[in-house]
Computed example of a mutant assay.
Amino acid sequence: MATAVVAAAYGGPEVLSVIATEVPSPGPGEVTIEVRASGVNPIDYKLYSGAFGSSPDNLPVRLGVEVAGVITAAGPDAAGPSGPLSVGDEVVAYPTNGGYATSVTVPAKVVVPKPAELSWEQASGLLAAGSTAVHAVAAAKVSSGDTVLVHGGSGAVGLLAVQLSLAAGARVVATASERNQALLREVGAVAVTYGPGLLDRVTQAAPSGVNAAIDAVGTDEAIDVSLAVVPESSRIVSINAFHRADTGIALIGGGPGADPGTEIRANAWRQLFPLAATGKLTLLPTKTYPLAEAAQAHIFLREGHPNGKLVLLPAQ
C-alpha cells in the first residue's frame, strides 16, 4: 500500500485528500519508484480546477507529474533513455501520473538517472520547468550574439530560460519585480521592472534592438512589448498567451494550437542535468511540505510569486 494525494472533486485545494492506495506491480517496461520528493507545478492544480474539463468519469484525479526517488521493483525490459534500470537506482521521472505519493509505478521510458550532486528536492523540481525552458529557448532560435527579452525571468521557467540563453552566448534582458532583480543580475541578465513604461525600459536596456523574446507570464503587456521590439513575431515564444495566437507568435506546451515539443522536452534532461550538476545553472531554492499538506502547498502556489520551487516530501 502507498499513501497518495488525489482530488476527489473539481474545485480548489480544499478538494484534495490523502488516501491509501495499491501500487501496481511493474509490468513490462515499467518500474516502481519509492518517492523521496515530488515537484509541485501549476499543471497539478489545473488538472482538478476544471481548466481541462470536469468530467466525473476522471475522478478521483491523481496528481504529480515529476518525482525523484529510488527504484524498488522493475518489470521485464525496464529500460529508460539512458539504458537498463535496476532496483536501487536513484532516478528522476517526468512526466508521471500520480507522483504525489509514497510510491508510484511509471513507464521506464520517462525515468532517467538522478545526478548525485543534486538533492532529492532539487532533482524533483527541475524537469517540468526545465524542459519547458529548453523548448522555449530552442523555439526562439536563440544563438550567440542575440539579445533576448525574457518575461517573468525570476520564475521557475524564466530563470532557466535566462541562463540557457546566456549559455548560448546571448545577452538577456529579463523582467521581474524589484525584490527579485538581484537574482537576475547575479546570473548575468539585465533586470527591468514590469508594469507601465516597460517598453521604454526595454529599449533603454537594449539600444541595439531585441532579436527574440520568451514569455513565461502570458500577459498582454508581455506580448505587446515583445511585438514592438522583436522584428520577427515567430521568434516570440510564449508558454501561456494562447489568447494571442493571432499575432503570429510561437506558442509551446499543451495549450490549443501549441507546439508540444515532445522530442526536445523528452531529451531536455541531457542538457539540464550536466549544467545543474556542475553548478552552471542557478536553481531556485526549494520550499518543502509534507505530502499530507499538499493543499497548503497549492494554496501558496496559487497566490503567485512563491520565490522558489515547491516540493512535497512523502517521508515527512
Rank of each mutant, 00 (worst) to 15 (best):
M1H: 13
A2P: 00
V6S: 05
A8G: 14
Y10D: 09
G12L: 13
I19E: 15
P24N: 11
P24K: 13
S25M: 10
P28E: 15
E30F: 11
E30P: 06
V31E: 05
V35F: 06
S38K: 01
K46C: 07
G50P: 10
N58R: 07
N58C: 01
V65Q: 13
A68Q: 09
G69T: 07
P76G: 08
A78C: 05
V87E: 15
A93V: 08
T96L: 12
G98E: 07
Y100D: 08
V104R: 14
T105V: 02
A108I: 03
V112F: 12
Q122P: 05
L126W: 01
A128Y: 15
G130L: 08
G130N: 09
T132M: 14
T132E: 12
H135G: 09
V137A: 05
A138W: 13
A139H: 03
K141L: 12
V142W: 03
G145Y: 01
A161M: 00
V162D: 01
Q163W: 02
A168G: 02
R171L: 00
V172L: 01
A174T: 02
E178Q: 13
Q181Y: 04
R185L: 03
V187K: 02
Y194S: 12
L199W: 12
D200Y: 08
G209L: 07
I214S: 00
G218V: 05
G218Q: 06
L227F: 11
S233P: 15
I239D: 07
F242M: 11
R244Y: 11
A245T: 00
D246P: 00
A250H: 15
A250E: 15
G253H: 11
G255R: 04
G257T: 03
D259P: 02
D259E: 13
I264D: 14
N267L: 13
A268F: 08
W269P: 10
R270F: 05
L275C: 05
A277M: 06
K287H: 09
T288Y: 12
T288V: 13
A292S: 11
Q296N: 15
L301I: 08
R302G: 15
G308V: 02
L310N: 04
V311T: 10
